[in-house]
């Protein structure tokens, strides 16, 4: 059965290996120079160098590859695994050899699932290594745009996408609709976890701070005139690389407000100046910021990987249950 699994899977495996090799060569050639550059230039210059030009393009390609690989695995390895055999009728051949269908599925899921995790892990490892100077300079590892393309979490995504594809193929029984469903469901799951699950995996750190010139990130005056207009502000926290989960403005009475009503000291072109901030502090306005410090990166990686691996196992369990009762 191992032989048959490999024999049927080897074309896809070669494609994956070729892509891994191509990326490995590209990154190995450019990576050492990037690291040297990081060590020998000032941070600002390094950031300028890597936010444009070929290193920028390479970092985008790397990020895109790690982002896309789990989805592609679900699409091309997972969805067709059962559905293509259902369409061609070859399951009726495979399931009448002297091997139970449970064992057939176990070996297929085991071998290709492990290959999917290995491939995603290798892609992520290479990109994580290559882009570590940029990540260090940016202090942005926890940000939603980067988190999913680094470390071990792509392994979890790949396992989940693969199991999702197999499940879709088993239920829908036709390859192309199963592929479409897999991609849609995978993207939905990734977005949902990023938006609604990940921020709550660990209780965020909360700080209450006055608005100062120093910590101000954004300042928006919604109307301008002699008396000014409502203001919204956002501030930073004194924790490099922190991921700000939420931020609220609290008034002197201790209530959350959507915006600061018009304040004379901030009206006209006096907005975002020291007198304005002093006046806001006098009125009792504070910013309540909830954030996740950068030091929690690996804790988040393990937690989210575990979540996706657990989902993958659930889907696999469902496949076993379904294949014993419903499929012919």
């Amino acid at each position: 059965m191992t032989w048959l699994t490999w024999r049927q899977f080897r074309a896809q495996a070669w494609v994956a290996m070729a892509a891994l090799a191509a990326l490995a060569v590209t990154l190995a050639v450019t990576g050492p120079h990037l690291a040297t550059l990081y060590r020998t230039t000032r941070r600002g210059d390094f950031l300028n160098l890597t936010q444009a030009g070929s290193y920028h393009v390479l970092s985008l390609i790397g990020a895109f590859v790690v982002l896309a690989v789990p989805g592609l695995i679900g699409l091309f390895w997972g969805a067709p695994l059962v559905s293509r055999e259902l369409e061609a009728g070859t399951l009726r051949l495979a399931w009448n050899q002297s091997i139970t269908r449970t064992r057939w599925l176990a070996i297929k899921l085991g071998i290709i699932g492990l290959a999917a995790m290995a491939a995603a892990g290798l892609f992520s490892l290479m990109v994580t290594w290559w882009s570590s100077p940029i990540d260090h300079a940016n202090e942005s590892l926890l940000g939603p745009a980067v988190f999913g393309e680094r470390g071990i979490v792509p392994i979890g995504y790949a396992a989940f996408a693969f199991a999702l594809g197999v499940t879709a193929g088993l239920l829908i029984r036709r390859t192309v609709p199963a592929m479409a469903t897999t991609v849609a469901a995978f993207v939905a799951a990734r977005v949902a976890v990023t938006l609604w699950v990940r921020p709550h995996l660990l209780a965020p750190v909360r700080v209450l701070s006055v608005i100062t010139q120093g910590n101000l990130n954004t300042y928006t005056q919604h109307a301008n005139g002699p008396l000014g207009g409502p203001i919204t502000v956002a501030v930073g926290v004194n924790s490099p690389g922190a991921w700000i989960v939420s931020e609220q403005t609290i008034n002197g009475g201790g209530h959350v407000v959507a915006s600061i009503p018009q304040v004379a000291a901030c009206a006209g072109n006096r907005g975002a100046t020291p007198p304005c901030f002093t006046r806001l502090a006098q009125l009792g306005y504070r910013q309540l910021v909830a954030y996740q410090p950068a030091s929690r990166f690996w804790a988040f990686q393990w937690d989210e990987t575990a979540i996706f691996l657990a989902l993958a196992l659930l889907l696999a369990g469902f496949c076993f249950w379904w294949i014993r009762r419903h499929v012919s």
């Binding site: 049927q8 009726r92 009448n96 002297s98 139970t100």
Partner: peptide
């Protein structure tokens, strides 16, 4: 499974 041989309709094989 070893005791029963089956040739399915349309005689499917792996193309």
């Amino acid at each position: 499974l070893a005791r029963v041989g089956f040739v399915a309709q349309e005689t499917p094989t792996y193309a």
